[in-house]
Design a protein around this nucleic acid. Structure first.
Lengths: 214, 214
DNA sequence: CAACATCCGGGAAATTTTCCCGATTTCACC
DNA sequence: GGTGAAATCGGGAAAATTTCCCGGATGTTG
């Protein structure tokens, strides 16, 4: 074997899902799940202990979400390779995570083979995007209206997303560990950049772009 | 003939739609469209001039909507018989209009026969609801979670609906001809009654209940 | 190094939200 | 016809949020 075993950290708040993924991934002889975490906070802790080759991270978790956890990890460990594993099959979402430093983005609706492939690719230093989402991004880039969302900085996007989830300034500040003042400022910036004048338009925009459901 | 001709006022902001309806209704020998209006304001004016037996009113019109127009008419002419003709095939919507004094509610998706039948029934002093919507209401009443929306007064509902459409306090006050102060107070009441703590929840609630689309 | 974007948050004015209150009007019911 | 409940409307005042403007810290890139 010229290949080293790929050491993986698995982050997902659903225990059952995590177990299943763990087992599936380890069917592949080149992959070993060396650690698991069930929250963003824990992921950051555990990452430091194991320094895995690849971190497979669920995006939607209570408390600090996957995005924020990833950013913390990357801030501390520059070379970390994070593969986002999300339920959102959405171009805007994927673009934002990659912009924030993710090395890959795989939708949960994709096949298992795709996840394995992504883990391998990312471990080799390459980037990987679900084919289904890559198509959407490509289409949106060519046809779309310039994609307003991509004009948001990662932080602005995150504040927007949390707001759209129904969190108020205080809760957002708590999650991101910044002051309410800063949250308010970002909020205003987002509204300006997206050209949305009231909360109703913001929510509808968020729904339209798949940041939240229904 | 033991029957009088039914004199109808037709209110819809789309000229073509109005023409079509007019022709269709007059195919029925017992019905005559004696007047038309293309806005809520105009409807109120014209009503006074013609005192029709039945007013067939579209709900969604720019400026004063059909609901508000109806309420004005009813406030002045107690015995007016208003038949709402709406694109919304939605239980909550229908219940609100009937609660506000409409004598009938017919969805635009319904058959033409249904509209004629509704006009005749309403002219005789009876009430009429689209069968499709009646079913929904019945189901919601029996199965639903008590239908929070029905706890709103007509005015509260109207303020909520306009808010959900993206209007701000100033615009709502303008449409309803009341002060911004009152709008703000209703807004607070709605939030309390529906148990919604932030604008995001309000918009999602509105979407879920079909008050607005997408 | 310089230019630029991002991140963070203070200050202060403007606006909105909330809570409390009272005056009418309407309406159902006895 | 009287009575009580609910609805409509809006003022006053405190609390909270939004907005606009600013400057420093940090990081990246040419």
């Amino acid at each position: 074997m010229s290949e080293e075993i790929i050491r993986v950290l698995l982050v997902d708040d659903h225990t059952v899902v995590r177990s299943g993924l763990c087992r599936l991934l380890e069917q592949h002889s080149g992959i070993k799940v060396v650690a698991e975490a069930e929250s963003g906070e824990q992921a950051y802790q555990v990452f430091g202990e194991y320094l895995p080759d690849v971190t497979v991270m669920d995006l939607s978790m209570p408390g600090m979400g996957g995005l924020e956890a990833m950013r913390r990890i990357l801030a501390r460990y520059r070379t970390a390779r994070v593969l986002i594993f999300s339920m959102h099959e959405n171009a805007a979402f994927a673009m934002q995570t990659l912009k924030s430093g993710a090395r890959g983005y795989v939708a949960k609706t994709g096949s298992f083979d795709e996840l394995v492939k992504a883990v391998v690719e990312v471990s080799r230093g390459k980037n990987y995007i679900s084919t289904s989402i890559a198509q959407k991004i490509a289409l949106q880039t060519v046809i779309g209206d310039g994609d307003l969302i991509s004009q948001l900085s990662p932080r602005e996007f995150e504040v927007f997303r949390l707001f759209a989830e129904g969190k108020n300034a205080e809760e957002i500040a708590e999650v991101l560990k910044i002051s309410q003042k800063t949250v308010a400022n970002y909020h205003t910036l987002v509204k300006q950049k997206l050209g949305l004048s009231n909360p109703v338009e913001m929510v509808r925009f968020a729904i339209k772009h798949g940041l939240i459901d229904s």
